[in-house]
């Protein structure tokens, strides 16, 4: 977006039928939500993309370095949004109690359209 300021859309996929956080767990606060964290750069803002066509993002109000995700539905996708300041490689980790831990590393550089 500007020098060393990047907007990242990162999809998290669930290819199985049970959501990573159930509605029951969310409503009754049975356990913590899924957490996404970024290593290697500073996170200015984060949120969940609720409509990629209209580019609508539900921004998280506090603690952008730790994005709280209300789960990925069964056979569904959530697109994580990060506004990141930095350069080089970053690692995004996603930690879910039911879905396990995954991580991905990629470069902050302009991608081909």
């Amino acid at each position: 977006m500007d020098r060393d300021l990047w907007r990242v859309h990162l999809p998290v996929l669930n290819d199985r039928g049970i959501p990573s956080v159930t509605a029951c767990a969310r409503e009754n606060k049975i356990h913590r939500m899924d957490l996404a964290t970024v290593a290697g750069a500073k996170v200015i803002a984060c949120g969940i993309v609720n409509d990629p066509w209209l580019d609508q993002v539900d921004l998280q109000e506090h603690r952008p370095q730790r994005l709280e995700v209300g789960g990925v539905g069964g056979y569904d996708t959530e697109i994580l949004f990060f506004l990141i300041e930095g350069k080089g490689e970053i690692t995004v980790s996603y930690d879910s109690l039911k879905g396990g831990k995954i991580a991905t590393t990629f470069k902050l550089e302009e991608m081909a359209p």
Binding site: R7, L10, L13, N14, R16, I18, G74, K107, M111
Partner: peptide, 16 residues
Amino acid sequence: HAYHLPRLSFGEPVVR
């Protein structure tokens, strides 16, 4: 039921 516990993976990131 065990098979359908969530299996997560990342898609391709889009950086702008």
